[in-house]
Amino acid sequence: MTINITMAVMLAGLYSIGFYLLMQRSLMRVILGIVILGHGANLFLQVAGGPPGEPTFVGTAAVEAMVDPLPQALALTAIVITFGLTTFLLALSYRSWALLGHDEVQDDVEDRRVAEAELAEREIEDEAAEAERVAGFEAPEAPEAGPGQTDEEAGVR
């Protein structure tokens, strides 16, 4: 089997650029990444059919000279699907921009809250226990830190 070097380089390029853009924080770049990756995948499906040949109409060429039509049919279907979903993604990103007013991909609020809340709670408990034990003996530094953090936590919520 021979390998079409142009196509191989092209595919490698499309896939690398696509995945690189997917890693970006800007939503528009992520969408461009999906588009380019989609082009790469569809082209790959096309290339999977082997080298170019005669069109597949009965009687126009020898069967051996004809190109394999199945990957072309698959690629057409895949192109339609990626096209449709890209349109949906664009509409969704427009909605996101309209709702949020910027196009950065955000951190997960709940994830961060779980991580911070656990930490804050433990600190508050420790400090409260400490404060109870040494009540009256020390300057009220620790109890002050507790409520401050609860407010902050409520703000996050």
């Binding site: 990756l37 790469g40 995948a41 790959f44 499906l45 199945l70 990957p71 990626t82 979903l85």
Partner: peptide, 13 residues
């Protein structure tokens, strides 16, 4: 899904 297409292309090749 795009990885799925890639996989199909590889399998077909």
């Amino acid at each position: 899904s795009l990885l799925f297409i890639t996989m199909i292309a590889l399998v077909y090749t």
